[in-house]
């Protein structure tokens, strides 16, 4: 369970460029569900995901993961939580150039204690799942948008996270790949992974496996009844 309590995120506080990206959000997300964040561009979806995923700290308010308050934890602990609990799929991919597809997928597991051959096996298996086996030794910068997107999904899953956060995961995928993606999400969810997706792709938010849709606008949640 993830609980958000009066969360606000202000960028460049005190400067002329000050901007409130998240403006008072109270939210409770249950484990084992697929939840979708929906909303226009700039409404704060990515910002909210990075707060939940311990990538950034809220300006005010508190976040609870299970029953642990994470907002006040030192960076060291947040790192551990990121590594052990979350798998993160970034909107901007954030793959490391110059490394191969396989190396990128294995990267989150480098600081864990898993053995190399087992890790490589897992990574190759994931690449196979996303039809990328033939690209495993290709450099990241050679990939197409859709291929890069699938690599980021594989990377998010390599540490077998209990919560998967995916930011616009289908933005560069065609209909068929989007469908496959949602099938994989459904399967992971059935295996017990909680999934949190930000998307304005109907292929995602209209999918039958979705448990809940949260609509956002201007850094706030749109009340469920008012959602059109």
């Amino acid at each position: 369970m993830i609980r958000l309590h009066h969360i606000r995120k202000v960028f460049n506080q005190g400067k002329p460029s000050e901007f409130t990206a998240i403006n008072g959000i109270d939210l409770r997300i249950d484990v084992g569900k697929i939840t979708v964040l929906k909303g226009p561009s700039g409404s704060g979806k990515t910002t909210l995901l990075s707060l939940i995923g311990c990538m950034a700290r809220p300006t005010s308010g508190r976040i609870f993961l299970q029953d642990r308050e994470i907002t006040s934890l030192p960076e060291r602990f947040l790192t551990t939580i990121r590594r052990s609990t979350f798998g993160f799929m970034f909107q901007q991919f954030n793959l490391i150039k110059g490394l191969t597809v396989l190396e990128n997928v294995m990267l989150p597991a480098y600081p864990t204690d898993s053995g190399y051959s087992e890790l490589k096996h897992r990574a190759l298996h994931l690449l196979e799942t996303f039809s990328l086996s033939h690209k495993s030794s290709a450099k990241i910068e050679w990939l197409s948008g859709g291929e890069a997107q699938r690599v980021t999904i594989a990377r998010a899953l390599v540490n077998e996270p209990s919560i998967l956060i995916a930011d616009e995961p289908t933005a560069h995928l065609d209909t068929k790949l989007s469908k496959t993606f949602m099938e994989i999400m459904t399967r992971l969810n059935q295996e017990g992974t909680s999934i949190l997706i930000a998307s304005h792709d109907p292929m995602v938010f209209a999918h039958e496996a979705i448990d809940r849709i949260i609509e956002m606008r201007d850094g706030k949640m749109v009340p469920t009844g008012a959602a059109a």
């Binding site: 990538m55 960076e75 060291r76 790192t79 551990t80 990121r82 590594r83 052990s84 979350f86 993160f88 970034f90 954030n94 793959l95 490391i96 150039k97 990267l107 989150p108 480098y110 600081p111 990377r155 540490n159």
Partner: peptide
């Protein structure tokens, strides 16, 4: 900028500052 971004990515993926 490239190196900074890379450090950010590694951190985001759960690398310790020490790593």
């Amino acid at each position: 900028a490239e190196e900074k971004r890379e450090i950010g990515i590694l951190k985001a993926l759960g690398w310790e500052t020490a790593d």
